[in-house]
């Protein structure tokens, strides 16, 4: 009885801690902070540099690879059907590993387990292209990550990382993206840090990049030690960001300044 009450109290407190989160009707994609020119670049497939990667991804989807000599398409056939809505649910819980994997991680599991090929390196052109191709099949689909009850402790870890002050500048993600998203940092909008468009083409990078690359840039920006690509912490942050963005449409491949 006592324990049940404690749990109820703790749950209520966790609810209160999350109460500063941005409410659904206030959630705004980074898109809405951009100039008309940059918006037009994202909206127009022929002008969107991310579409070149999507086309590469489509070619890779059909290419046989690994000692299984199988293409993604051999098992998943038409991505427009089989992959529709998939990215909106990632990161997802992977039972065999007992932890969440992001979309890049899932694709690499298919590389090693089903194609018997070596996994692609993080931020390699191939992995970005395939991820963009798979995620583009969810364009417009509302984000619905984090439903699986097995994910709950990992969402909580991601949230803890989000509100943890760190680095020489001693700032938390939440200090900027929850508390000051309507303000400007040295003249440029801070935005809510929504993960809706990844992988995306960033003009500053002159390249397509993953959500992990963006997170590492923010972590280095506050002069903290960036977590390694593929580390549990980055996946937990991605997972928390995706649950925080619930209901927002996937935009991949987005464009950002």
């Amino acid at each position: 009885m006592r324990i049940a009450l404690c749990i109820a109290l703790l749950t209520a407190m966790a609810g209160a801690a999350l109460a500063t989160e941005i409410s659904l009707d206030q959630r705004r994609s980074g898109y809405s902070f951009m100039s008309a020119d940059t918006k037009a670049m994202q909206d127009e497939d022929t002008a969107n540099p991310g579409m070149l990667f999507v086309l590469d991804g489509e070619a890779l989807w059909k290419r046989k690879a690994g000692s299984a000599d199988k293409a993604c398409a051999d098992c998943h056939s038409d991505a427009r059907v089989s992959m529709k809505g998939v990215a909106a649910h990632y990161p997802a819980f992977e039972k065999t590993l007992g932890k969440p994997v992001d979309l890049e991680g899932r694709i690499n599991l298919c590389r090693s387990n089903h194609q018997q090929a070596s996994p692609f390196a993080y931020e390699s052109r191939e992995l970005l292209a395939l991820t963009a191709y798979v995620a583009q099949q969810s364009r417009g689909v509302p984000i619905a990550a984090g439903d699986d009850p097995d994910l709950a402790p990992f969402v909580e870890k991601g949230h803890a990382l989000f509100v943890q002050r760190q680095g020489q500048l001693n700032l938390a993600c939440a200090n900027c993206h929850d508390d000051n998203w309507d303000k400007k940092l040295a003249g440029s909008p801070i935005t809510q840090g929504q993960p809706t468009g990844y992988p995306l083409y960033r003009l500053e990078w002159q390249a397509l990049g993953s959500l992990q690359r963006r997170l590492r840039a923010c972590i280095t920006g506050i002069r903290a030690q960036a977590y390694d690509y593929g580390s549990p912490e980055l996946v937990e942050l991605e997972l928390y960001l995706m649950t925080r963005a619930r209901g927002m449409p996937v935009e991949t491949p987005a464009v950002r300044p």
């Binding site: 760190q166 680095g167 020489q168 903290a224």
Partner: peptide
């Protein structure tokens, strides 16, 4: 949110540089 400019203790995960 203003950083402490002359402090080295009580900080978390400061980058190597």
């Amino acid at each position: 949110i203003m950083p402490s400019y002359y402090r080295v203790d009580g900080l978390t995960r400061v980058g190597a540089s």
